[in-house]
Simulated scan of single mutants.
Amino acid sequence: MQLVFATNNLNKIKEVQALIPNHIKLLSLNDIGCFEDIPETQNTIEGNSIQKATYVKTHYGYDCFADDTGLEVQALNGAPGVYSARYAGEQRDANDNMNKLLSELEDKDNRAAQFKTVITLQLNNKQHTFTGICEGDITYTENGKLGFGYDPIFKPKGFQQTFAEMDLALKNNIGHRGKAVLQLVDFLNS
């Protein structure tokens, strides 16, 4: 079986590939010749996930799955949420995003946040969604060099290190994307 993962983010592909069974061949957007930016114009994480998976199935004909992830911070009424990747602007720079978020939380005691990933699977002309959530807190400073995005400032509940200080196996085991991917894998194996 082969499935397209509707992303060209090599970090995401690496994380997901570690969880997908060997009998499933994972293809990236590059592998199928999709070089355009897939629209992400919905106002929810779920909506963007569905939009991306539908786009690949409609325009390229492949069974596929797409994910969308957002960081939802309590003190900011759920922001950056669906706008997490471009929180500090269309340049989608992780450092700019982290700096903006830390700046906005400067005078806030409530640092509670959660990462939310929604995966939409388009398989045999049916659509299925899977959601993974990881609760935690936003740190005051960046810590760690592993991971990507907001990982250096997100400390999962029950842990003393940020995602960027964890190895991939631990992050996949407790993280939002790992939880959603495991639901996807369970579904594919059933």
Rank of each mutant, 00 (worst) to 15 (best):
Q2K: 15
L3Y: 06
F5Q: 06
F5Y: 14
A6H: 12
A6K: 10
T7I: 06
N8R: 15
N8D: 13
L10T: 15
N11F: 11
N11L: 04
I13Q: 09
I13F: 07
K14L: 11
V16R: 00
I20D: 00
P21M: 04
P21T: 02
H23W: 07
I24G: 01
I24A: 07
L26Q: 06
L27P: 15
N30T: 11
N30H: 12
D31H: 06
G33T: 08
F35N: 04
F35A: 03
E36K: 12
E36Q: 13
D37M: 08
E40L: 04
Q42L: 08
I45T: 07
E46P: 01
I50T: 09
Q51V: 04
A53E: 10
Y55S: 08
V56W: 06
K57C: 03
K57M: 01
T58D: 11
H59Q: 12
H59W: 00
G61F: 01
D63S: 04
C64F: 08
F65T: 10
A66W: 09
A66S: 15
D67S: 11
D68S: 09
D68E: 09
T69H: 09
T69Y: 11
G70N: 14
L71I: 12
Q74S: 15
L76H: 05
L76A: 05
N77V: 00
G78S: 14
P80R: 01
V82S: 10
Y83T: 05
S84K: 14
S84N: 14
A85Y: 05
E90N: 15
Q91C: 08
Q91P: 03
R92H: 09
R92N: 15
D93C: 15
N95P: 12
L101G: 12
S103P: 06
S103A: 10
E104H: 13
L105H: 14
L105K: 13
L105G: 14
N110I: 13
N110K: 02
N110T: 07
A112S: 14
A112L: 06
A113C: 12
F115I: 07
V118P: 03
V118C: 08
I119D: 01
N125E: 14
Q127N: 11
T131N: 03
I133K: 02
E135V: 03
G136L: 00
G136C: 02
D137L: 00
I138G: 12
Y140D: 10
E142V: 04
E142F: 05
N143F: 05
N143T: 05
K145M: 03
L146P: 01
D151N: 11
P152A: 05
K157P: 02
K157L: 04
G158P: 04
Q160R: 05
Q161L: 05
F163L: 08
M166K: 08
M166C: 08
A169W: 00
L170F: 01
K171Q: 04
K171L: 00
N173P: 03
H176R: 11
R177N: 06
K179Q: 07
V181H: 02
L182K: 03
L184A: 04
V185R: 12
F187D: 02
S190K: 09
